[in-house]
Design a protein around this nucleic acid. Structure first.
Lengths: 202, 202
DNA sequence: ACCAAGTCTGTACAACTGTACAGTAACTGA
DNA sequence: TCAGTTACTGTACAGTTGTACAGACTTGGT
């Protein structure tokens, strides 16, 4: 129940309550889904009370939007970490892809949240897909201006390709693992894991 | 509020209350997810009261299992509709795949439910994946016994391949459509839709 | 005709949900 | 030092949830 440590500066965990709430919400949303996660569970995970969540975010819906915004920001930062001028133009695209892939591989919660949010289909409450698409479209424009990206296809087609290639494998992988595990008893479990291939053709 | 029509035989809708409840549950579970679907919503969609759901299924969890069992049964029936002796052995596999694909294409609710259930990842409450995997494994055994299926790979690998090929595209398609729609404003909306490619390599 | 079984309704309830709000503690700048 | 803003707690509340249960209607067998 201790709030910010009395005398001395920032708490051991140097995040503000607002940020801790957002992080805890992302983790729980990713684990169990938004609907199945109560504000009380978030509060307890963040070490605060429900009242503080309401104070900072007002409603659960606003909190969810803040979580999504934080995810989009993470993508932005990651892409921006490989600026256009940093290396030969023909390597920029690959370098950015790799940076995003690495960011995602160290943030299981983001992948899990995105899987739920993007595959929901009809539920489309926020505009997460819009924001990520715009981010991706901006990248395509950058690369086109630098003369790297082909202009044979439309921007839309290229965005679909980028996003599906990046995310498709991550989304489907749990299913592959789950099915593989189903047969670990019969065969040796130490076999080469199946590799997913996800692409789109226009 | 009318129960089974008083004098004359079965109701216009010739399904029993128990089956109507199961069907309504599948539809709503697929649309909004299990957690977000209340028993009252199911009851209202099925034209019965909550009490009847409890009478027939006891708990929501049992109802969910009944829904999943019905899905697995549907797969079984579909595969069985193309018996081993019905045509040249080398066409059996393709014919069965096509039958399943057609069944899925006319049952959006099944696809939507499976997408949620199979991609949930950790949530794995029931053993839906187990049951579908076993069904698939049985099919592989049949085809091997008939000398059609290769024995180069393990059964597990072949099951993964079958299931991911069948389901992967269906699961990812909403994402592709959603992103494509994002760019319909910029480009003409009547373009050739992107085609998904999902496969696994071992 | 009668009874047992099955189908179905309506009401009730405790647990949990998101939200509201009044109050307390800490920090800020003048 | 003091006032104002911000961070935070604890309690309260109305709505919804899953489940329980008592009773009414219908059906099938003897």
């Amino acid at each position: 129940m201790a709030r910010r440590l009395p005398g001395a500066g920032p708490p051991a965990n140097d995040l503000t309550g607002k940020a801790r709430i957002r992080n805890a919400a992302l983790d729980l949303f990713a684990e169990q889904g938004v609907d199945a996660t109560s504000l009380r569970a978030i509060a307890s995970a963040a070490g605060v009370t429900v009242g503080l969540i309401v104070h900072h975010y007002g409603t659960k819906e606003v909190l969810r939007e803040a979580v999504e915004l934080a995810i989009v920001d993470r993508f932005s930062e990651t892409i921006a970490s490989v600026p256009l001028g940093s290396r030969p133009v023909d390597q920029i695209a690959a370098a950015r892809d790799e940076a995003v892939a690495e960011m995602l591989s160290t943030n299981r919660a983001i992948v899990d949240y995105l899987r739920r949010a993007l595959l929901d289909g009809s539920a489309e409450r926020g505009d997460l897909v819009s924001r990520l698409s715009q981010l991706s479209a901006q990248q395509v424009h950058d690369l086109r201006a630098a003369g790297v990206a082909s202009t044979k296809h439309t921007v839309g087609d290229q965005v679909v390709t980028i996003m599906v290639r990046q995310l498709g494998r991550l989304f489907l992988q749990p299913l592959v693992d789950r099915i593989s595990r189903e047969f670990d008893d019969d065969m040796g479990p130490s076999r080469t894991p199946p590799q997913l291939i996800v692409d789109v053709s226009h």
